[in-house]
């Protein structure tokens, strides 16, 4: 299981749709090797100069598939990609049935491939590999600084936000993963941390996690990543809102018998893990890992 390189051949399943065609445009303009698109019934068309096929089997061989199909079709799109031996799958689509998400995760695990999502905005690896939308239209144009941080987040928007904030402070990114904010994803926070730990160019790890993530329980019990580590945990505001319901992401649920976010931060800090409540605090804690 590894990240694709910048030459990896990429398919976009659902490329004829609005999101799919924009993803094709952005990925191609940022240098990604998009070889074809797949939309059942639309074989023979072209999007952004790339051919569309009716199935993954008919399409040219590829290493990566980005899945942007409607939520009810994601599970079958993943199966199709796995049947064609695709080694890395990114699922942008959100609002997937929980039972489908569990099955997608199981299928990817059984095959031993990397799968991000559902509801993953993408992954990015400096200097030149970006899958999905992460980092916006031109992720390698200099606004995001190259460096040695791995940033892992349940939120796509906050991944981008924190990459921008770190870059403004002169701190650079090596690897960023927006894993998706659902209850079940192909690559969870702990698994993404393991990928960052295994990457020799990553020297420190930052995680943006929302209440309800199982990682928080591990951190409260004293588990720690093997590289310098900063956590940002938002959600003190959940105290204003009824518990047991999902806010922002379907995986962001503070259970009725769980400690408050403020308490969780305290518990985690007591275990010796730097835990930020705000973006400014996050950046400042990250800076301290360099001294």
């Amino acid at each position: 299981m590894s990240f694709p390189n910048a030459q990896a051949r990429i398919l976009i399943q659902g490329m004829t749709g609005k999101e799919g065609s924009r993803m094709a445009r952005w990925m191609i303009s940022s240098g990604a090797n998009v070889v074809a698109g797949v939309t059942p019934g639309k074989g023979g068309q072209e999007v952004e100069g790339r051919p569309i096929f009716n199935s993954v089997k008919e399409a040219p061989p590829a290493d990566v598939s980005c899945i942007v199909v409607p939520s009810a079709h994601v599970l079958s799109a993943v199966k199709e990609a796995l049947d064609s031996n695709i080694q890395f799958i990114h699922v942008l689509t959100e609002n997937i049935a929980l039972h489908d998400a569990v099955q997608i995760r199981r299928l990817a695990k059984d095959k031993g491939i990397l799968l991000f999502g559902p509801a993953s905005v993408g992954v990015l690896h400096f200097p030149d590999m970006r899958i999905g939308y992460l980092g916006g239209e031109k992720p390698f144009s200099g606004q995001i600084k190259e460096g040695d941080i791995a940033l892992i987040s349940t939120s796509g928007g906050m991944t981008n936000e924190l990459m921008a904030a770190l870059s403004r402070a002169g701190l650079g990114i090596r690897l960023a993963m927006a894993i998706g904010g659902g209850q079940v994803v192909g690559t969870g926070l702990s698994e993404a941390i393991a990928l960052a730990e295994a990457d020799p160019d990553v020297k420190r790890i930052a995680v943006f996690a929302e209440p309800g993530q199982p990682l928080l329980r591990e951190l409260r019990r004293g588990w720690k990543p093997s590289k310098p580590f900063i956590l940002m945990l938002p959600g003190a505001a959940l105290d204003l809102l009824p518990r047991g319901l999902p806010y922002g992401h379907t995986g962001t649920i503070l259970g009725e018998d769980e400690p408050t976010v403020v308490q969780t931060r305290e518990d985690i800090r007591k275990q010796g893990v730097a835990c930020a409540a705000t973006v400014a605090e996050f950046v400042s804690l990250m800076k301290q890992t360099y001294v």
């Binding site: 939120s155 906050m158 003190a236 505001a237 992401h249 705000t278 973006v279």
Partner: peptide, 16 residues
């Protein structure tokens, strides 16, 4: 508010 994560960060920020 926009963004699953940012909406929480923003509400935290307003309260703070």
């Amino acid at each position: 508010l926009s963004g699953g994560g940012a909406s929480l960060v923003a509400l935290d920020a307003l309260i703070a």
